[in-house]
Amino acid sequence: MLVLVVDTSTPAVTAGLVEVTDAGNQTRAVRVTINARAHGEVLAPNIAAMFDETGVRPSDLAAVVAGVGPGPFTGLRVGLVTAAAFGDALGIPTYGVCSLDALGAAASGSGRVLVATDARRREIYWAVYEAGVRVGEPAVDRPAEVAARVGAEVQYAVGDGAHKYADVLAVPVQQEPRYPPVSALAELAADRILRRAPLERLTPLYLRRPDATVPAGRKPVLQ
């Protein structure tokens, strides 16, 4: 079953076409553009380029898989609304995967791994994985807080957030994976795709509330 994969939870604007079968998955095409400010411009042309490159037509798709974050909001929404619109237009199911889970599943070192992506505002989105499986819930915190809480129990770290704050985290950082890989995103949804699970509403993992404060009393204009 041919699947469109998108993830826009990091500066890596990620798209892929993956053939998912009972016997395993085969990645047919991948387009990754690293640009934290161009998710909206880059994603659709990259998907179109994959169609051109492979000769795949949209109507050949059987499902859409989207990384649901956590990630910076504006970019994250580009991938999710793209996936949702593709699913709606083609009448095919959409499945969500926690973007950190894709990094955790692709991490190949031994022992527990800290997965961290850049949350901006000097914070990271993070979770801990053991044998590719998440331990606990994804969270957003300052790197120093994360180091204090789980620094002693993890053997290494992956993800662009780990690279950026390597000195604060004080954990060995593996070069790859740095961003959620297409193959891992597809694999984490493969079971649902193959058993044709009901479509899932793609709910973003924002982990932060909108910045908005209810205004206090109005300031008088008379002195």
Binding site: H39, G40, A48, T74, R77, A83, A85, L90
Partner: peptide, 18 residues
């Protein structure tokens, strides 16, 4: 900017898919 982007990304996906 942020609200426009949701509509633009959706429109591109609908256009590309159809």
């Amino acid at each position: 900017a942020g609200t426009l982007l949701v509509g633009v990304a959706a429109a591109k996906a609908y256009a590309l898919a159809t």
